[in-house]
Design a protein around this nucleic acid. Structure first.
Lengths: 195, 195, 195, 195
DNA sequence: TATGAATGAGCGTTCATTCAT
DNA sequence: CATGAATGAACGCTCATTCAT
C-alpha cells in the first residue's frame, strides 16, 4: 500500500532527470520508460500523460520552494538579510531539485501558456513581488544603491542565481552554502577590488 | 540581382524569431513557412533542412560575435577595461541578434553533440579562454578580488550577461549601452551601498 | 527550326540513360535536368511531363522494333530462319536502344496499367503472336521439338534474349551479331555436348 | 508465446507481395499497412523501416537459397548433374519465395549500392563462382560445348532460370520440378530437332 | 528558351496515447 | 502492474509541376 507512492516518486525522479537532460519536448515517453525499466504504455498506469509528469515535477518543486521562501519572508529580517536568506535558500533548492530547476528554467515560459500550468505564472508574480519588494525596501532603507534601475537589479539578481542550475552538479567542489556565500559577495560587493 | 541573398536573410530572420519563441524542437517547419507566407515545402528551395537553418542562424551570429570580441581582445586594454568592453560588446550583440542569442542559450548544449555543430563547442572553449583569462589577469594585477573562486566568477559574469537575452526586447526602455553600463556597475561594484 | 527536334532527341537520350540506370520512379526530373545542364522546370518547355518522356522513349523504341520485326515476318522465311532472324534483329535493337530496352524490361508491366501506355500491352500481344506462332509453325514442320510445352519454350526464348539488355554494354567484347549467333546456337542446339 | 514471430512473418509476406507487384520504390508503407489491415505507423512497431523490411525479405531468401545450393555443391556431383541439381533447386526456391525472387531481380542492383545490402554483392560473387566454375569444369570434362564463350553461357543459363520468377505463379499448370525438367532439356539439348 | 520561386500532394517516420490481456 | 499491439495525428522532407519573368 505504501509501495505505490514511492514508485511514483521514483518514476518522477527518473522522468525529471531525462527532461532536464534532453528537454521536455525532445524527451520521449519511451525513453523515460526505458530508464525506468518498463514499456512506454506501462507509464500510463501511473500517470495520465507526459504533461502530468512535468506538472507534478514542477508543482512539487514550487511547493517546496515556496515553503522555504515563505518562512524567510515571515521572519521579519532586514532587506539585506532577507536577500541573503533567499539566495541561500535558492541554492539549497537547486541542490535538492536540480533537475526540476533545470526544467523550470528551460520550459516554464512556454508551458505557462497552457491553463493547466497557470500556477507557473502565479509563482512568477509572487516571486517578483518578494524579490522586487525586498530590493525596493532596501533602496528606501539606504542599504541598496539608489542609482540603479531596480527592475534591472531584480533581473540581475534573479537570473544570477537560477542560471546556476544549468551548470551546478550536486556533490561538486563547493557546497550550496559556499556557492551562495560567494554569489552574495559578488552581487552585493562586486568583483572589483575597492579603490 | 541581389534578391536571392536578401530572401534567404528574411527567411532566416523569420525562422530565428520562431525558434527563439518556441524552441528549436517544438518549432515545425510548417510554422516557419506560415510566418513567411509560404508552404512548408517551399522552404526547401532555399534551405537543405530545418537543421541547416539553425546552423546558418547560429554560425552567422557567432561569426559576428567573434569579429567584435577579437577586436576588443586585440586592443591591448587592461583587464577591467577589457571586461567592460566585452560586456558592452555582448549587449550590442544581444541587441542585434536577440533571437540568435536566445536560440544559442537554449539549444547550444544539445546541438553541440552533433558533428555539424562542432563549432559551438569550439566557440565555447575560445569564449572561456577569453573571459577567464581576462579575469585571471585582473586578479593578478590586483584589480579583481582574489578571495573569489575565479571559475565561479567567470560563470557569474558570463551567465549574468547572456541570460539578459531572455528578457531583452530591442527598442525597450534602456539602450544596450545603458544596460551594459548598469550591469557592469553591478558586477564590478555590487548592488549594496558601501559602508 | 531544325534545332528543336534535335534538342528533344538529346534530352530524351539523356532521360533514357538515367531512367535505365536508376529506374523510372527513382529518377527525379531534377536529375535529368542536371544531366542535361538545365533546371528542372526548364524541361517542361520541351515535355508535358515526366511520363510523356518515358512514353516517347518507349514508343519510339517499339516503333523501330516493329519496323524490323515486320520486315522479317513479311520475308516468308521458314520457322527456324524466322527465329534466327528475329533473335538477330532483337540483339541489334538491344545494341541501338539499350537504355530503352532496359526501361521496357523494368517498367513495362506497371506502366501498362495506365491507358496512355495501352500500346505496351498491344505490342506484347503482337509479340506473342509472332514468336509463339513461329514456334508452333516450327513444331508442326518438325524443326522444333514437339515434346516441350510450347508456351514454356516461347517464354524461354523471349526472356533469354531480352534479359541480355540488363548486362549488355555497346562496344563490349562481342558484337550484337556474334552474341546473337552464340545465343541462337545455345537455344537451338543446347549447351551440352552431343553424345 | 510464438505469436510475435508469426505476425512478423505474415507482415513480411504481405510486404513482399506488394514490393514484388509494384516495385520497392513505388510501394508506399501505407499500402503495405492497408494490405495488412493496419495503419502505416503501426508497421513501425514491428520493423525499423521500410528498408529493414526488404532487407529481411531478401536476406531470409538468400539464406535459404544458399542452404540448398551449398548442399548441392557439397554433394560431389559431376558438372552436368550439378547444373541439373542447381536448376532444379532454383525452381524450387522460385516456387517457395516467388515474391522475394521477383524483388531480388528488380531491386538487387540498386540496393546493393548501400552498405547495409553488401551481402547482395557477396551473394552475386558466390553465385558466379558456383555456376561459372561448374560450367568450366564441364567444358574441361567434355560434357559442355567448348565452342561457346563460357561467360555468355553462364549469363544465358543464369538469366534463363531466374527470369522465370517474373511469370511463374505457384499452383500453376506445371510443378517447379516439371518446369525445371523442361528448362534443363532446352538449355542442355536445345529446342531444335536434331538432324 | 530557360530561370527562380513557389505549390500541393504525398511519403517515411515518430510518438503520445489507448486498451485488451 | 505491466505488456504487446495498435491508433492517429503530425512532422520533416521530396518531388512533379506551374508560371511570371
Amino acid at each position: 500500500m505504501t509501495a505505490a507512492p514511492e514508485r511514483r516518486g521514483e518514476l518522477l525522479a527518473t522522468a525529471a532527470e531525462v527532461f532536464a537532460a534532453q528537454g521536455y519536448n525532445a524527451t520521449t515517453v519511451r525513453r523515460i520508460a526505458d530508464e525506468a525499466g518498463m514499456l512506454a504504455g506501462s507509464l500510463y498506469y501511473h500517470f495520465d500523460s507526459k504533461e502530468s509528469m512535468v506538472d507534478e515535477i514542477l508543482s512539487t518543486f514550487l511547493n517546496e520552494l515556496w515553503a522555504g521562501y515563505d518562512e524567510v519572508l515571515a521572519a521579519g529580517l532586514g532587506p539585506r538579510e532577507t536577500i541573503e536568506a533567499l539566495v541561500t535558500q535558492s541554492f539549497k533548492e537547486i541542490d535538492r531539485h536540480r533537475a526540476a530547476v533545470a526544467i523550470y528554467q528551460k520550459e516554464a515560459r512556454h508551458l505557462a501558456a497552457q491553463p493547466r500550468f497557470g500556477y507557473l505564472a502565479d509563482s512568477q508574480v509572487k516571486f517578483e513581488r518578494a524579490w522586487l519588494g525586498t530590493l525596493e525596501r532596501g533602496v528606501a532603507a539606504g542599504v541598496f544603491r539608489a542609482d540603479l534601475d531596480v527592475r534591472l537589479t531584480y533581473r540581475f539578481v534573479r537570473d544570477t542565481v537560477w542560471v546556476a542550475a544549468s551548470w551546478y552538479r550536486p556533490g561538486g567542489q563547493h557546497s550550496p552554502e559556499e556557492i551562495a556565500r560567494q554569489y552574495l559577495s559578488m552581487v552585493l560587493d562586486g568583483v572589483a577590488v575597492r579603490s
